[in-house]
């Protein structure tokens, strides 16, 4: 593939208000790129793996930034940087799960620039797709990763429907475990999308990873009080400790009562195109203490239904071990 190293000609728009941004998104939908922190933008465009006519730079919109307390919990603007989330006392105090997830995204420099919205909406890392091949996700008719010679060590165990790419977002699984909701706004109005519906698999939409319509802007993320100050566990396994994507990761939220688990939510990253919830594990651990033996009992439930590819069987025991460790306490 030719490396161009320079940006193509793109019309740049820098709206200062949400209204202007949604107006532009509606007018340019399909041909515009919504720019947040820009940490997964320029490679696509310089390589010509994606081509757009316009770029809507959202960074000038103050309304999309910041963390604020709301009657029902906490609301985080989509343009809030990952470093701000890591350092914010409200997040650290009530939702340390999200803080831990944000703290392991890429590298300090990227976290300084990268935003929560960008981290949630970033595209998959499947290199066949990113290389510009005409795979299903790129609008083509085949999957190169799921082929006899395909290199699929990092790809999906669950929910693969033709495309086997996985979500690369670290914060997505934390938000799924926290039952967050995403606020999508457009000229048509705003809508609240539960985290579990915000991320979409290839069975529903093979070319998009989120439920956002082409004219919608992710405005904020709401964290409900329901899981504030619960017990949490976040762990990410990657080839490198810094500046790498998860091979498998886990986010667990556990509400305890009298030393026993009253309610639990688990979400795994790196194993599906969406944050992969573990409902069987969640049901199995209710009423049990957070202990080694509970983890032992529940771990095998996590990987039930997994369909490993040629090179990613290692993810099955890895996932089970992460469940064990999450329940060990």
């Amino acid at each position: 593939m030719t490396a161009y190293d320079v940006m193509p000609d793109i019309e740049l728009y820098q709206p200062a208000t949400v209204e202007d941004a949604t107006e532009l998104a509606a007018r340019l939908k399909g041909s515009a790129w919504l720019l947040a922190g820009g940490q997964d933008t320029y490679g696509w465009l310089k390589d010509r793996a994606k081509t757009v006519e316009a770029m809507i730079d959202l960074k000038g919109i103050d309304a999309l930034k910041g963390i604020r307390e709301t009657p029902g919990g906490v609301e985080i603007g989509a343009l809030t940087t990952l470093t701000e989330i890591v350092r914010h006392p409200l997040i650290g105090e009530r939702y340390p799960l999200l803080r831990e997830a944000a703290a392991v995204v890429a590298s300090p420099q990227i976290r300084n620039m990268g935003t929560l919205g960008g981290n949630l909406c970033q595209d998959t890392r499947c290199w066949y797709y990113r290389r510009g091949l005409s795979c299903y996700r790129a609008g083509g008719n085949t999957c190169y990763a799921d082929s006899p010679a395909g290199m699929n060590r990092e790809h999906a165990l669950f929910g693969a429907s033709r495309c086997v790419a996985v979500s690369p977002s670290d914060t997505a699984i934390a938000l799924s475990a926290l039952e967050a909701t995403m606020i999508a706004t457009s000229r048509r109005g705003s809508r609240e999308i539960p985290a579990d519906d915000f991320f979409v698999g290839p069975d529903v939409d093979i070319v998009n990873m989120t439920a956002l319509a082409a004219d919608e802007v992710l405005a904020s993320v709401r964290l409900p009080d329901r899981w504030a100050n619960a017990e949490f566990h976040f762990e990410k396994v990657a080839d490198r400790n810094v500046w790498d994507f998860a091979l498998v990761s886990i986010a667990a939220a556990l509400r305890m009562r009298d030393g026993h688990i009253e309610n639990a939510r688990f979400a795994c990253g790196g194993v599906a195109c969406v944050p992969y919830r573990l409902p069987a594990v969640e049901r199995a651990v209710v009423g049990k203490p957070r202990s080694e033996s509970t983890g032992e009992q529940a771990a095998h439930l996590a990987s039930r239904g997994a369909k490993p590819l040629n090179h990613n069987q290692f993810k099955v025991p890895l996932m089970e071990n992460l469940v064990r460790r999450a329940l060990r306490g």
Partner: peptide
């Protein structure tokens, strides 16, 4: 007909 230019600059037939 829908085409897409692949990484080698060739046009790939995608469908109708």
């Amino acid at each position: 007909v829908r085409y897409r230019e692949d990484v080698w600059g060739r046009e790939v037939l995608l469908g109708v």
